[in-house]
Amino acid sequence: MPAITVENLTKRYGDTVALDDVSFELDEGEFVVLLGPSGAGKSTLLRLLNGLTTPTEGGVYIGDDEVTGKRSDIGMVFQMHYLVETMSAYRNALTGALSRADFLDSVLTRYGREDKVRALEALDTVGLLDEARQRAGSMSGGQQQRVGIARALVQEPSLLLADEPVASLDPKAAEEVMGYMKSAAAERELTTIASLHQVNLAREFGERYIGLRDGAVVFDGGRDDLTMDVVDEIYYEDGEGPAHEVVA
């Protein structure tokens, strides 16, 4: 049975079709990169996957369970990391365990020992164990994004989503963040969907690629199938574009 099933997913905002009859299945532990130009529907798809918005038609299923709202077993990594900058990296990571703690305990940082260990393990996974007590606001952009990944991991998700997680980082930090995300997913056999703008990063870290254009899937395949022509087709309507010229 597939881990994630997306079935005839359509999302319309008034007359605008943001997502048009998208279907695919993901196996447990697959690392999928979502490609497509701005406005192709990548963000809409991710928002539908984690229940932040409801589909006009079709549905998303985790196992047999339909996603109908926000849920703790889907972790999300945001483009601008969205950490609480006044809290330490450790306490930021611990917010991933909020759904397992009641209000008073969480306010007093009285989480179960398991969750504390989980938070530190997640920080260790992203290489920040020694920086656990550092204030998130004083960290570099790459480190902050890695704390963001740790927070999602502490949720113990069955699906990890990342919405352009490295779009605001320099190339070196972007490479590192993607590396940590990939290894975290591999370590935990975590099904992951990340939208990316940088084709070179996508080629380096992706295993499977889903290309979106104008809300529809125009490509779904592995690394070997992702040729420059395919990239051109995803990003430029007629297969004619700068990428083509670079190859030529």
């Binding site: 260990v117 530190l120 393990e121 260790d124 996974t125 920040l128 020694d130 656990a132 590192e176 590396g179």
Partner: peptide, 28 residues
């Protein structure tokens, strides 16, 4: 650690509640 993510990938804390985690938790 930032310089070499690959190194952490191989030796990084896969062991649940390993000694490094324990001592970090104690300190915190």
């Amino acid at each position: 650690t930032e310089d070499d993510p690959a190194a952490t990938r191989t030796d990084g804390g896969t062991a649940r509640g390993g000694p490094r985690i324990e001592s970090a938790l104690d300190r915190i």
